[in-house]
Computed example of a mutant assay.
Amino acid sequence: MASSSKSDGQLNIEGNTIQVTSLDKILYPTMEINKQTYLQYLIEIKSVMLPFLKNRCLTVKRYPHGMFDDFFYQKNCPDYAPSFIETFQQDDIRYIVCNDLSTLIWLGNQLALEFHIPFNKVTSVCPTEIVFDLDPPSRDHFSLAIEAALQIKTILDRLELHSFVKTSGNKGLQIYIPLQENQFTYKDTRIFTQFVAEYLVDQSPDSFTIERMKNKRGSRCYIDFLQHAEGKTIIAPYSLRGNDEGLVATPLEWNEVDQQLTPLKFTMDAVLERLENQECPFMKMDAVRKKQPFERILKGLLKQKNG
């Protein structure tokens, strides 16, 4: 990095010059993570993070003064964005599409700490995966998310559906079911997600709920199937979160999901070390898309619904 001062410099990435500023700014005081450390994380994580951002309309959560101060969500690409930033117009919003490291680092310099993505690509209105968001009331109830995840995994295994799991980077877990692209609508997937969520609640009403109002959930884990819809987003794999510990939304192997699991272990440094020793579990997603028997399952549910 060519530096003009202690806290400013330039990065030349993929032929694009990116001005980086305030590199010594502290973003996560508890973890002593400054902006330079964060940008270095994005550089090191690029090969596993970018595939999940590719061709997706991006919503970022920006923390101009670090995570301990005000934040805002940004959908529209700002007018001052450099010319190499790719965009996609949808209705009245000009979204950023983060397909390369240059864009990722530019966003990082803008202190976009959270990257939220939709379930479909810009090339299609059909989702490329089904996602269940398992949201306990607090980290103290994380065991409920584990219990829900394992019960859903049992259901999916019986249906012969390949599934993947990640931490939310905060207090929950998220289960992914990759689908063959351009095959199923959000209306199709809603039939399935609602069936699974309602079944789970029916089996364990004291542990799980589909109640949308937080003040009515009590200490139960919210099985959020409504979030999987057109226009909705989910935190991207390997995105940091705006919490004190700078936790990362981290893909897991299913054998890691047990009652000893805690989201607190997945810090930025821990995730980088983890990837030095093992492949990202989500890298197997594309290999199973066409093997998923979702069409058969959907037909069965529709027959049951209409019967």
Rank of each mutant, 00 (worst) to 15 (best):
D133T: 07
P29H: 00
G172L: 12
K153W: 05
G218V: 15
L252S: 06
A149P: 02
S3W: 14
I130Y: 05
C126P: 05
S168E: 13
T250W: 07
S5E: 08
P118T: 07
F119E: 08
L261F: 08
N170T: 09
T59R: 07
L53N: 03
L11C: 04
E230D: 08
P127E: 13
E114W: 15
K166R: 04
L298V: 11
A287Y: 05
K166Q: 06
G169Y: 12
D202G: 10
P82K: 02
K25T: 03
L156N: 01
L301I: 09
I152P: 03
Y238I: 06
N182R: 13
A112Q: 12
L298C: 12
Q89M: 03
H228Y: 04
L53W: 05
D224A: 02
N170W: 08
L50I: 09
G300M: 05
L161S: 01
F72H: 02
E211L: 15
S3K: 14
W254Q: 05
E230N: 06
Q260A: 14
R274S: 14
Y238W: 12
P51E: 04
D206K: 09
I177P: 05
Q40D: 03
T185I: 03
E273F: 03
I210L: 09
Q174V: 09
I45S: 06
L301H: 12
V60N: 03
G242V: 08
Q180F: 00
Y176K: 11
E279D: 14
L159V: 02
E32V: 07
Q40P: 00
L107R: 04
F71V: 06
M1P: 02
Q180K: 03
F84Q: 02
P51V: 05
L200F: 14
S4Y: 15
T154S: 00
F282N: 04
N16G: 02
F282C: 04
D202K: 12
D140K: 15
H116S: 06
S124R: 06
R56P: 01
V196H: 04
P237C: 10
D91N: 13
R241S: 09
K232C: 05
K121E: 13
P263E: 09
V122F: 07
H162L: 08
I223E: 07
Q259N: 11
Q259Y: 14
E230M: 08
T30L: 11
I105D: 08
V165D: 02
T189Y: 12
H141I: 03
D92M: 13
T17R: 13
S163F: 09
A145P: 04
R217C: 13
R62A: 12
L302D: 04
E160L: 10
A112P: 13
